[in-house]
Write a protein that binds this DNA or RNA. Structure first.
Lengths: 231, 231
DNA sequence: CAGGAAATTGAACGAGCGTTCAAATATATA
DNA sequence: TATATATTTGAACGCTCGTTCAATTTCCTG
């Protein structure tokens, strides 16, 4: 709000008087303003990490004054939790869209999930950067931790359903879909984490291959004691 | 250094004069003092996360004055990087010790590695807490990122060797130990991460089982196209 | 025991932090 | 057009931050 303010794009209606004082600010519906502030929070987090998580920088990023944030959010923590929720929701949308366009059949749907995992929308160091800040906050801020638990549970439920469909189709009764989902999700998270921390260690294609192989071997190995396989 | 100072434990030598002024501080060799400051940094990080990463709190935790840290470290960043290195080294010691006591044979050594991964020394939310702070810093502090890369590379080399030994012993030529190590390490990291963020989702024993199964199925599935296996 | 090197102290500085709140402003409504 | 209401502003408060540096203190050396 300092020198390069751009308070409104609707300049046309103001031309009726040349000397008319420009509007100092524009009122918005609380819901819209809240969304704007959350988006600005995520941008600041992506750009500056923990250092960006400051009322002053977020206000500047959103083009509003310092005091406005505490008018719409009771505290900084509440704003952060809302930003966490928002980012998690937006990312889950990426996966939902990928699954919606996937060919039928549980195996193909899993592949679509993997492809979304290793897409540019997900493999973004900025996003890991944001996530690590949320994680580090979740330790002492129950409101933030709660968001993580919701998010993780939803992801596990989705993966459990995908694996359950696959094992049901293949008639594999001795696989526990819930536990397998935990393992598969762990590998996805770990690959995502390490790739974001150092993209040169392996390629997205290699990560994808590891996940596909994980599923194939889960099917292959089911119900077969080690000794029974020929070789 | 405020009220409850405990500058020295060698009180015996001071008894020769009752009114002798107590020593205000104790000089130490730079290396010892540096180690002390690094240890205090890790304790602060474990207790308070990002908030604990402050010169003042670390100085208080170490029982020294504010100015001493910048006498031994050129900047806060350098201290943090050194703490990262120290913690990584200490954790790698846990794994080295586990492998040193492992029964012979590559498969048993992998199991020993897993056991160390899911031991109390490693499954500690405090440690994840510290790690997330390091990760979030590594984005904009090359000195910290460099430590991560060293650490990750060393871990991968160890796992690659373990898997290489296993596949060599089993005569499995079509497994790439380096890529497999990346996948296995990712699952280990992911399980560790999620357990620390929410220990109620799965038990360490279940995590262990997932890793053991991962290796068994890697062996089982090697060299065998899906269709060739009976069933 | 005296002298000097260096480890240690702690006040000070300028900056940024989250939050508060009275005043200013925009907009819907009468 | 006038009024009421709620959004928005921005100064102010009390605090913590990392770093600097002159002064103090310890302890080794001669």
């Amino acid at each position: 709000m300092s020198e390069t303010s751009h308070p409104s794009e609707s300049a046309g209606a103001d031309l009726r008087r040349a000397a008319e004082p420009t509007r100092k600010f524009e009122r918005q519906l609380p819901d819209d303003r809240r969304r704007e502030l959350v988006a600005a929070t995520i941008r600041c987090l992506a750009r500056e990490g923990h250092d960006g998580l400051s009322i002053r920088r977020i206000a500047q990023e959103a083009g509003v004054s310092i005091g406005l944030i505490n008018h719409h959010f009771p505290s900084k923590t509440a704003l952060v939790a809302e930003a966490y929720r928002s980012l998690a929701h937006s990312l889950s949308g990426v996966f939902a869209a990928a699954l919606a366009e996937a060919p039928p059949g549980p195996r193909a749907r899993l592949s679509a999930y993997f492809a979304a995992s290793f897409s540019d929308a997900n493999l973004d160091p900025d996003i890991l950067h944001i996530w690590t800040v949320f994680w580090s906050l979740s330790r002492h801020q129950p409101e933030v931790a709660e968001v993580h638990h919701e998010t993780y549970r939803a992801t596990l439920e989705l993966l459990t359903r995908l694996i359950g469909d696959l094992t049901a189709e293949a008639g594999l009764a001795d696989i526990d879909p819930a536990l397998s989902a935990i393992g598969l999700n762990a590998m996805l998270d770990g690959l995502w984490l390490e790739w974001c921390l150092n993209p040169r260690t392996f390629s997205p294609a290699e990560g994808l291959r590891l996940c596909e192989r994980w599923v194939d071997q889960m099917i292959l190995g089911a119900g077969q004691p080690l000794a029974r396989c020929p070789g």
